[in-house]
Design a protein around this nucleic acid. Structure first.
Lengths: 340, 340
DNA sequence: ATAGTCTAAGCGAACGTTCGCCCGAACGTT
DNA sequence: AACGTTCGGGCGAACGTTCGCTTAGACTAT
């Protein structure tokens, strides 16, 4: 436990403890000489302010809450750790820390846990990830005027802070790249309808092909949950199409699905990159070293984390916010899976 | 901010606020009737105790610190998220929360951040992951009598709390399985020397082969960092051995390396599972759906997380600890990569 | 009837800060 | 010489709890 307090420092420096507090908080009403002496005493005694006392007095908290998916099995969100790291880094630069919690009863979007943490003054605000369309957390937090920022968009009608990656642009990059390579029949493996993220990416796919004068065959679009298994099944369906309709390239909305698709291609005796081009999304560390290295869309996760934190803290501190929603442009990392 | 306090509840219930506190903390000196009335008032007003005030008064904290690797690039620790989830779950069952922090200056084992958090009374103890041999954090924390528990062992001479997976046993399972299938020349792709985790796993490899009467050729053992790239390179080296010495099966100490090895096998025109058997370690969600599904050793990460939390909290609360170090047995999940 | 025990609840204090207000001294202005 | 201003620093109070001690009243035992 932190033994040395303000009073100890004050006693040794020969001032009142409130004066020490002033020095710590930079309220410049202290003579330079005195201030220097106090600082010296602080380092001499290795004094550290007590967080609870400070938070109690200021009615604040230096913690930002971030929910983890409560069920470990469904937890395969490949860039979650990277996101958390960038968030933690950014938060710490501003004197905040990250509180990771799981929501009860396997219900990731349960607002109880959010309510609890905020009402008890444990956290000053929240960072949301895995945001979905109609995400119930958002109206809940908005209504209570609880500071938060989401990684990911939700309903357009809701006026809240978010940062997202421009998935439409990411898929545009992939699609343009494939068109440039001469592909005309391009498949699209995506999530079930209703996914907002999926919708944006699909727009990128549809609009780019349309702009290139390619008529999209509805059979080219296959949907399923985010798993390699679904990717493989979807790819098999595409391969089963008659030769005239069969895609020569496939865009996947996640690396996981792309890996499954590549499996299915190999299982069918075809070569990824030569017979069929494949692109993924996320650029998880492993895809660089797959049998055929995977072309993938990389999100600027570092910047996103920093911006998310900035937006929450601005709300907490009551600072002005220029733009409530911000899109970051991803980049396309081209590898052999789309290059021959 | 939490508007309603003990005094508000007390006023409405017609008692002193200290009495309300007694009810909250179950100090049974309150008449049943009064207690019921107070509980009713608490729910009526939706009262939540202020965490900072409580922590200040009790000189405690309800937070457990856990360091994330500060550098996102090296952060590909596939089961880290699952570990965190199990830890957060277990902690919350005991009224604690998880504070995730990054250590400064890309030095994961920097003790400054630990010191800072503990001295400021921000956390009550720590959970260590990515523990290494000679891990400087351990003597540091021990010396200051800061409660902590490590996921992973370190120096045998150090007397501290840890929970680990029995890697030796895990590799024994893999090796026995391969021996049962008739393999005699079994390669081993592992981390550089000096890794304690690697050493245990290597023991499992060496002892199992030895017990089966197989003389291990030193050339079968290849080392490198934990990446698919290194796995591929190591596998290429093994494949380049003269036919009489070339392994017919390979045990990898991580799935990532196993994936790299499978790449190299495919690139050499051979078939995983038929020409060469491969096993991994971690059983990350994806390996089930690779081109050839990967046989892998699965760690009971849920139990590990719960036990780690239990050990820290016992230290914090001064409860007895029966056993300072605990090993959990992993299981082998057999798939096609070692099965035909 | 008196002393002793028990129960329910109240009260003051403290945890370590920060905040706002006050005050004395020194200085400059008219 | 009287007055306003600034500067450096002190002081009391408060944030919302928990803890230990005290006490009024009721009950029991002698």
């Amino acid at each position: 436990m932190s033994r040395v307090t303000l009073k100890d420092v004050a006693a040794k420096a020969g001032v009142s403890y409130q004066t020490v507090s002033k020095v710590l908080n930079g309220q410049m009403q202290v003579a330079e000489e005195t201030e220097a002496r106090i600082w010296q005493t602080i380092t001499d005694l290795d004094y550290r302010p007590n967080v609870s006392a400070r938070n109690l007095r200021t009615q604040a908290s230096n913690l930002l809450g971030h929910a983890l998916p409560g069920d470990a099995a469904q937890a395969y969100h490949p860039i979650l750790v990277q996101f958390m790291i960038s968030v933690a880094n950014a938060a710490e630069q501003q004197g905040y820390h990250l509180l990771s919690f799981v929501t009860g009863n396997n219900d990731f979007y349960d607002h109880q846990a959010y309510d609890q943490l905020y009402a008890r003054n444990q956290v000053a605000g929240f960072i949301l990830s895995n945001t979905t369309q109609n995400d119930p957390r958002i109206p809940y937090l908005l209504e209570r005027v609880i500071p938060f920022c989401s990684f990911g968009r939700a309903n357009d009608a809701w006026d809240f802070c978010w940062v997202d990656v421009d998935g439409q642009h990411g898929i545009e990059l992939a699609a343009s790249h494939l068109l440039d390579l001469g592909h005309q029949r391009i498949g699209f493996i995506t999530w079930p309808e209703g996914s907002q993220t999926g919708w944006y990416r699909e727009q990128g796919y549809l609009l780019t092909l349309q702009a290139a004068g390619v008529a999209v065959d509805p059979q080219w679009i296959t949907r399923g949950n985010n798993s390699a298994q679904v990717g493989a099944r979807a790819m098999s369906q595409l391969l089963a199409l008659p030769a005239a309709a069969r895609p020569t390239a496939v865009i996947c909305v996640s690396d996981l699905m792309a890996i499954g698709a590549m499996n299915a291609i190999a299982a069918a005796g075809l070569n990824v990159g030569q017979d069929i081009a494949v692109t993924g999304f996320d650029d998880i560390p492993m895809v660089e070293y797959l049998h055929t290295p995977l072309t993938s869309v990389r999100q600027p996760i570092q910047e996103i984390g920093h911006y998310v934190v900035d937006l929450v803290i601005r709300q907490i501190r009551g600072l002005p916010i220029e733009q409530k929603g911000v899109l970051f442009k991803p980049e396309l990392v081209i590898r052999a899976s789309s290059h021959t």
